[in-house]
Amino acid sequence: MIKQINRKKVRAKKHRRVRKNISGTATCPRLCVFRSGKNIHAQIIDDVAGHTLVAASSLEVRDVNGGNVEGAGVVGKLLAEKAVKACVKSVVFDRSGYIYHGRVQALAEGAREGGLEF
């Protein structure tokens, strides 16, 4: 009998493995990425206090498709702008079990261009 692979379970397992070592503090919060088929979302989270400091999504930008690389880059720049206004300079990048390629990479590069350090 062939065992079927569930992508969501594999990603969740990778995410748990990464989260053992990564946590956000007030001085260096965590930048968490969620990628769906049509959109991409990112949050900057202080895990010690349990608060989301800044959030950005492709749903906020109407001119851009969040399902492609260009849209993810725009969301990264938007997140960085909001973070700079909230006095956040450096973050820890949490790719949430996704491969650092394509939209996740574009979001990270857009955030770096916008002024975040990680």
Rank of each mutant, 00 (worst) to 15 (best):
E113A: 14
L107C: 08
R112H: 09
A26Q: 12
K38L: 15
T52K: 10
K20T: 14
R16V: 15
Y98N: 10
R17D: 14
E109S: 03
V33L: 10
Q105P: 01
L79A: 01
V48F: 07
A111R: 10
I45M: 10
D94P: 09
V54F: 13
T25V: 12
A106W: 07
P29F: 15
K77T: 08
G50C: 12
V88M: 02
V18S: 08
V33Y: 00
I5C: 13
R35L: 14
L53F: 00
A12M: 08
A108M: 08
I5A: 11
I40G: 00
L116F: 10
V10F: 11
K85W: 04
N65P: 02
L107A: 03
K13D: 04
M1R: 06
P29H: 11
K13R: 14
R19I: 13
L116I: 11
N21A: 14
A108F: 05
A42K: 08
L53K: 07
H101P: 06
S23I: 10
K89I: 13
D46T: 11
G102K: 07
V33S: 05
G102C: 05
E60Q: 09
T52Q: 04
T27N: 11
I44W: 09
Q43D: 07
N65C: 06
R62K: 14
R7F: 12
K38N: 14
N39C: 08
G37L: 13
V61I: 14
G115F: 09
G102E: 03
A12V: 12
K3Q: 12
L107I: 12
N65I: 15
R11H: 05
Q105A: 14
G66F: 02
D94W: 07
V69F: 04
D47K: 08
E109P: 07
T52H: 12
S57M: 07
R62D: 13
A108C: 09
L107K: 10
K14H: 15
H15S: 09
A108E: 00
L78T: 13
E60C: 08
R62Q: 10
Y98D: 01
T52C: 14
Y100Q: 00
K20I: 13
N6F: 07
A106K: 02
G110M: 00
S90G: 05
Y98Q: 02
R16H: 08
N21Y: 09
R16T: 14
Y100E: 05
G67N: 11
V18E: 10
V75I: 11
A83F: 06
I5W: 12
K14Y: 15
A55W: 06
R103T: 05
Q4K: 14
D46R: 02
T25L: 03
A86S: 13
L78S: 04
E70I: 15
G24Q: 00
I22K: 05
H101W: 02
K3N: 03
C87I: 04
R62V: 08
R62C: 05
A111S: 14
E109W: 01
I22A: 01
G66Q: 01
